[in-house]
Simulated scan of single mutants.
Amino acid sequence: MPTPDPATQLEMYRRMLRIRRFDETVKTLFDRGRIPGSVHLSIGQEAEVVGACMALRRDDTMVGNHRSHGHPIGKGAALGPLLAEILGKATGVNGGKGGSMHLADFSVGSLGESSIVGSGLPVAVGAALGAKMQGSDRVCLCFFGDGASNEGYFHEALNMASAWQVPVVFLCENNGYGVTTAFGRISRVPDVAARAAAYGIPGQIVDGQDALAVHAAVGQAVQRARDGAGPSLIEAKTYRYPHHSEGPLYDAIAYRDASELAAWQARDPLPLFARHLEDTGIADAATLTGIEQAIAAEVAAALEFAQQSPWPDPAEAHRGLYRTPIAGFDHA
Rank of each mutant, 00 (worst) to 15 (best):
E46V: 03
D227W: 10
D268T: 04
G126T: 02
G120C: 05
A7D: 14
A198G: 15
A258N: 12
T28D: 14
I86Y: 11
F183L: 14
G37Q: 06
L82N: 01
T181F: 09
P242I: 00
G120T: 09
L261I: 15
A258Y: 08
Y153V: 13
Q165T: 12
P6V: 08
I295A: 09
D137E: 14
G76L: 01
E278N: 12
L288R: 13
G51H: 04
S162F: 07
M160F: 14
M12L: 13
E113K: 10
R18P: 12
D59K: 13
D59G: 09
A263V: 11
F106A: 15
G76M: 00
A131Q: 06
L56M: 13
I234D: 02
D251W: 01
G99V: 04
K75A: 06
E235P: 02
P6L: 03
L129I: 07
A197K: 13
P248R: 09
V49N: 06
R224Y: 10
H66E: 02
R240L: 07
S114Y: 01
V179T: 15
A285V: 15
L56N: 04
C142P: 06
W164G: 12
P122W: 01
D251H: 14
F183A: 11
E278T: 15
L87W: 11
L171C: 10
A211T: 14
A161G: 04
N174T: 07
V189P: 10
G44M: 00
